[in-house]
Design a protein around this nucleic acid. Structure first.
Length: 841
DNA sequence: GTAGGGTTAG
């Protein structure tokens, strides 16, 4: 029979008479094919039946439609509709309702609406509910509410399905007041108690629509009957709205209530667990997932990848990779979860880029999250060429103006110091949000283009969202990094106006800004006025005093911090040890180094060892320092040897310096700092042949030392000078002032120290070289352009040169001005011929 | 025929 029936399908032109065509087996085969998802087979069977004049009856069509909807075979459903129209059957409510549902679920709300309109008095409660639901599911919340009100006017009393639909509609409009009115209505009607679904839609109306978890939880709590879906919904909303702790607690309550979590529940609770970085709890969840046979679910897998990645601080990044490798197939989400993990939590950028390439060659299309992560990886590696390739791929896929991708492009180009491209990415953004503004402001600030940063800052005032704490702290750190105290003060005023005066994050940024701009007293005042201080506040002020050479005040603050019950961290100890080192407090420093682990359980890191090497080395205990280096529990890195080399130079020990330099070059053969320090050392001993050899080696390896530059802020504008800079319009005026100053300070006893000149030339020429140092130019510029009432604040990217240090001390004497110099290492407060560093730096 | 929950994020 079956083989006979198949024949006509192969020969469509051959028509059998309706009588000879057996309708029943085809009908049952059609339904079977439908149920197992064989869409094309079902279509050909239907065609065959109709072709042979055997139209199914109305109940059969109805059944067909239901199957199509249940299996989401919308194409076949539409075909069935076409056949229905041809069959000229008089459609009943049931069939028409099915058609509304079909088109609604297929996203064609207009078609659904026209069927509903054509129904006339065939409309029943299900028809009304279907159309309300159709509008609500197709982002037409307002239309849905109107339909709901129409329904009431037409005398239909809503049931639980209908209430659930209208609450979803209220969620969509964002207008909860209508929803709340209807909610009152529901309570009166008694449906609330009866139905799980009404409860769920109410929870979501409050949680998703209004972000009001309190009301959502009240609904949840009062529901007399709850199932897995209800619990999961509540857990999910807690997790999504940033209440991870509550989500986890609710999950534990759920398990205690003997409900069995499913794949949805696990996905949500694992997200919350990832947020809280609860590795061991996460592992328990993982084993439960395996036990319940849910490990192969794609969503669950993604969540696990993300969970282990977010706990990567505890070394679980490889676990994340393992879960990923065990997954049977991968889509954008799982690839992105893993890539993001390598970038954000593991700092393993090369691996992330490699994965990205694998993903693309596997024809998986990256999305905006993928681009965002991979751009961050290229930025962190300062790998401009990869960044550009990724950019062009994003353009190709039409994602470059997406907010998330665009913001990452801004920071990628900024980190590669391509501000023009960075700005272009900003301008190309489709829709700029506060993060876009904050990113570009931060980028300008970090590239010393503070004017652009502040222009944009004013632009933020004109858009609907104002600056937030992030904007302010970014601008403050920008002002701090360039030492623009005037700008810093302006921002300080603005934060007060914007009501951020007790914001801990901003106060911390202010402490750091004032201190880094050279006014540690202002920093201390902000600190003193803070109501709520955290470890960052204390560490900032300790670092401030330390960098300014006030070792005792730094240590006093440290003891006060301990008394107030705040535990120090690694950064605090770096500040404490470097305070001791700047002031030459050898035994005090040793004491703190020894107690950091014994009293506070902090294992010393490389930078702490470096502080100790600095402390011992600078106070002349070179052999002790070397002994210390050799007794370290790990191999000394380039930083340690550079510190040691610096000490050797101060104390003129060529032999040990050579050893240190060779150690640096062993680990980092292209380190220009090692070459320069070595060259300086030989120059100061007049060993010019050695200097020449080193210069040659540097040239061969194409190494250039970072150019020395100094800058000064005058009337909110930063002026930057390089060595021998003549680019400033008033250059001749500046050099005249310098010549005048040198004559004056020579009278006071200044003798140029030509040891600091790295060229083998006549003494007189050497003096000329010294005069061209950027810090001297900046001081002269400052003397011409500032009033006596304020100190002159100079900033230098490298360490101050010894001759400049001496010269500036004499200049302070000759002019009666206070001069503050911030170099790459510390502050020098120079007044009346004396420096706060006591010539020890 | 009408109803509810999940992954990656600057």
């Amino acid at each position: 029979m079956t083989s006979l029936a198949l024949k006509p399908a192969l020969q469509p032109n051959q028509k059998l008479s309706p009588k000879s065509f057996n309708f029943e087996p085809h009908k049952s085969r059609l339904i079977h094919d439908l149920n197992v998802g064989r869409l094309s087979k079902a279509i050909s069977t239907l065609d065959l039946m109709v072709h042979n004049g055997a139209h199914p009856d109305l109940p059969s069509y109805s059944l067909l439609l239901k199957s199509c909807i249940r299996s989401r075979n919308f194409e076949l459903g539409k075909l069935v509709h076409a056949h229905l129209v041809n069959s000229k059957l008089d459609l009943d409510s049931l069939t028409l309702n099915s058609l509304i549902s079909l088109y609604s679920k297929n996203g064609d709300w207009e078609k659904a609406d026209s069927i509903f309109r054509s129904m006339g008095n065939k409309r029943n409660l299900v028809s009304w509910t279907s159309i309300v639901s159709c509008f609500a599911n197709n982002d037409l919340g307002f239309e849905a509410i109107v339909a709901f009100l129409d329904m009431l006017e037409n005398g239909f009393w809503p049931d639980e399905y209908c209430f659930a639909a209208v609450f979803r509609a209220c969620l969509d409009t964002g207008d909860l007041s209508i929803g709340e009115t209807i909610f009152g209505f529901v309570i009166k009607s008694g449906y609330f108690k009866a139905d799980l679904c009404v409860g769920c839609s109410l929870i979501d109306m409050f949680a998703k629509g209004g972000g009001d978890l309190n009301s959502a939880y009240k609904v949840f709590d009062k529901m007399p009957e709850k199932n897995v879906v209800t619990w999961t919904l509540m857990i999910t909303r807690f997790a999504q709205l940033g209440f991870a702790r509550e989500a986890v607690d609710l999950f534990l309550d759920m398990v205690l209530s003997d409900l069995v979590p499913d794949q949805f529940t696990f996905s949500s609770v694992m997200s919350a667990c990832a947020e809280l970085e609860l590795l061991s709890f996460g592992k328990q969840l993982h084993s439960q997932v395996i036990r319940r046979g849910l490990a192969f679910n794609h969503y669950v897998g993604c969540c696990l990848v993300d969970l282990y990645a977010k706990c990567a601080a505890d070394g679980s990044m490889d676990e994340s990779r393992k879960v990923f490798d065990h997954m049977t197939n991968h889509n954008v989400t799982s690839w992105t979860a893993l890539i993001t993990g390598y970038v954000r939590n593991g700092g393993r950028y090369h691996e992330a880029i490699k994965l990205f390439c694998e993903m693309i060659s596997g024809h998986v299309r990256p999305n905006h999250f993928t681009f965002s992560s991979i751009l961050k990886a290229s930025a962190s590696l300062s790998d401009l060429s990869t960044g550009k390739q990724v950019h062009s791929l994003a353009v190709k896929l039409g994602l470059a103006s997406d907010n998330c991708v665009g913001n990452s492009l801004i920071s990628m180009y900024a980190q590669s110091r391509q501000m023009e491209y960075s700005r272009k990415a900003f301008d190309n953004l489709f829709d700029k949000n506060l993060i876009s503004y904050n990113t570009i402001v931060d980028a300008y600030v970090k590239s010393f283009e503070s004017k652009e940063a502040f222009d944009l800052f004013h632009e933020i005032d004109d858009v609907e969202f104002g600056a937030n704490a992030y904007t302010f702290s970014s601008l403050l750190s920008g002002a701090a990094s360039i030492g623009a105290i005037g700008k810093g003060e302006q921002i300080h005023a603005r934060t007060l106006k914007s009501g951020f005066d007790s914001n801990q994050c901003i106060s911390n940024a202010l402490v750091s800004m004032y201190s880094r701009c050279g006014n540690v007293e202002a920093a201390f005042q902000v600190f003193s006025e803070m109501v709520d201080r955290n470890i960052i506040s204390w560490t900032s002020i300790i670092t401030g005093f330390s960098k300014h050479g006030y070792a005792e005040r730094a240590l006093t603050m440290f003891y006060e911090m301990l008394e107030s019950g705040i535990r120090p961290n690694e950064v605090t100890y770096t500040a404490v040890l470097s305070a001791c080192s700047h002031a030459g407090l050898v035994s005090e420093g040793r004491k703190h180094f020894n107690t950091m682990y014994s009293k506070h359980g902090i294992v010393p890191r490389m930078e702490h060892y470096a502080c100790m090497v600095d402390l011992l080395g600078r106070s002349g205990l070179l052999s002790k320092a070397l002994e210390f280096i050799n007794s370290m529990p790990f191999m000394a890195d380039a930083l340690i040897w550079r510190t040691f080399l610096g000490a050797c130079r101060v104390h003129g020990n060529t032999e040990l310096a050579r050893h240190a330099a060779s150690m640096i070059l062993e680990q980092d053969p292209h380190n220009p700092a090692a070459f320069v320090l070595l060259a300086n050392l030989h120059a100061s001993m007049n060993q010019w042949e050695e200097v020449a050899k080193i210069r040659k080696r540097m040239k061969e390896r194409d190494l250039t030392k970072e150019a020395g530059s100094s800058w000064i802020e005058v009337e909110n504008k930063v002026y930057k000078f390089h060595v021998g800079d003549t680019s400033h319009p008033k250059a001749s005026e500046i050099y005249n002032e310098l010549d005048r100053l040198v004559l004056k300070i020579k009278e006071l006893g200044y003798v140029p120290n030509t040891d600091f000149v790295l060229h083998d030339v006549e003494e007189e020429v050497k003096e000329q070289y010294l005069l061209q140092h950027s810090e001297k130019i900046a001081v002269a510029f400052g003397l011409i352009n500032t009033t006596r009432s304020k100190p002159i604040r100079i900033f230098k990217n490298l360490r101050i040169c010894g001759d400049c240090h001496t010269a500036i001390k004499y200049i302070s004497m000759a002019t009666g001005r206070e001069i503050v110099v911030r170099d790459s290492n510390r502050f020098h407060h120079i007044r009346n011929g004396k420096c706060s560093c006591i010539d020890y730096w």
